[in-house]
């Protein structure tokens, strides 16, 4: 119970810090830009984490990220609706397609599932630049309306707070899901599908539900990024985009709410911090080494670091009297 309360206060503190950060940074555009991209990737990583929580590790989450971006852009351009509305419509369309993709995946496990999701990202990209080229502009891409027009004074701050609010909302939603019956069902399926079925959980239904929610949230993240960039191209389906949520989530801690947040924040700071020193390839080498070391020594992610330190401290204290005698 105590721990629960600690976490609540801690997350409130994090949001508080995020809310006042722009003033500490004097609304520095570069840092705000880094923060906004970081928030978008927190949503994206959290959505991937939710799917992984139900035992389905996707290797092609960029498909949903991109579908959300394209759907939201096209709706906004064609109908003139505000991006504040269309990002959720884009998310809904991504969720719908997520269910369709999920249908082909329900029987698949682990690597098989990973490869099929990976393939879908490539197929969706091929469709975007071929059959849908007249709508999507093919490889040229199309302009996308900004979340807040740059004519509005302080638009970048409004965008930042909007995205911060959506991020907090998404994390709260995932928190509620994890604590609800649905979350229990996801966990049961992940641990043992047959036992879950015996105890009355329909794995197919819940797997599809996980796909829908995860794809929807990834779609919202993609739409946010695109409306922030003001331009969308098929590069959004890139393999690297699919890999980022995996890197962020596992570095932070798979299957935990804080994992994707911690992972994204830490890696963003490292990534852009190392850039200050003018490193080029060396930066990637350092990050690569950190990833390797982290998974070897902290297989449960950075969120397990406090426990690990506490455990180490306890062992040390136990040992030290022995050493004295």
């Amino acid at each position: 119970m105590d721990r629960e309360r600690l976490i609540r206060y801690l997350s409130l503190l994090v949001i508080g810090v995020a809310a006042v950060l722009p003033f500490v940074l004097e609304a520095n555009l570069y840092l705000l830009n880094v923060l906004i991209l970081m928030l978008i990737f927190i949503i994206f990583s959290s959505s991937w984490n939710l799917l992984a929580y139900s035992g389905q590790g996707s290797l092609g989450h960029a498909a949903f990220f991109g579908i959300g971006g394209y759907a939201s852009t096209l709706i906004a351009v064609q109908s003139g609706l505000s991006p504040y509305v269309t990002i959720f419509l884009g998310g809904a369309i991504a969720a719908g397609i997520g269910v369709l993709i999920g249908l082909t995946c329900v029987r698949l496990k682990e690597w098989f599932l990973a490869m099929v999701t990976f393939g879908f990202a490539i197929i969706v990209q091929a469709i975007t630049v071929s059959f849908l080229a007249s709508l999507t502009g093919g490889w040229d891409g199309i302009a996308s309306p900004r979340l807040v027009s740059s004519q509005v004074p302080g638009y970048i701050l409004i965008e930042y707070y909007s995205i911060l609010a959506i991020t907090a909302g998404v994390i709260l939603l995932i928190y509620l899901i994890f604590k609800s019956k649905i979350g229990m069902a996801f966990l049961a399926i992940r641990e043992n599908e047959i036992e879950a079925r015996v105890s009355g959980v329909d794995p197919v239904r819940y797997k599809l539900l996980a796909f829908a929610i995860s794809a929807g949230l990834a779609g919202v993240a993609g739409a946010l990024e695109i409306h922030y960039f003001g331009y969308i191209t098929p590069e959004i389906y890139g393999i690297d985009i699919s890999f980022w949520p995996i890197i962020y989530t596992i570095l932070g801690g798979l299957g935990t709410i804080a994992g994707p947040v911690v992972g994204t924040v830490v890696l963003t700071i490292l990534w852009d911090g190392l850039k200050v020193f003018g490193l080029t390839y060396e930066r990637y080498i350092i990050i690569g080494a950190i990833l390797i070391l982290s998974v070897i020594f902290l297989p449960k992610g950075l969120v397990s670091l406090p426990d690990k330190i506490a455990g180490w401290w306890k062992r040390r204290q136990k040992k030290s009297p022995d050493a004295g005698t």
Binding site: A52, G57, L59, E110, W111, A114, F243, I246, I247, I250, L251, L254, Y281, E282, Y284, I285, I287, G288, A289, I290, L291, I292, V295, I296, P299
Partner: peptide, 22 residues
């Protein structure tokens, strides 16, 4: 876990590609 293997591979990819570039 399988996902840790993917994660480790991604770290190795960064490491090898950029060492080779160096």
């Amino acid at each position: 876990g399988k996902l840790n293997e993917i994660f480790l591979s991604l770290g190795l990819i960064y490491l090898f590609q950029n060492l080779a570039a160096l």
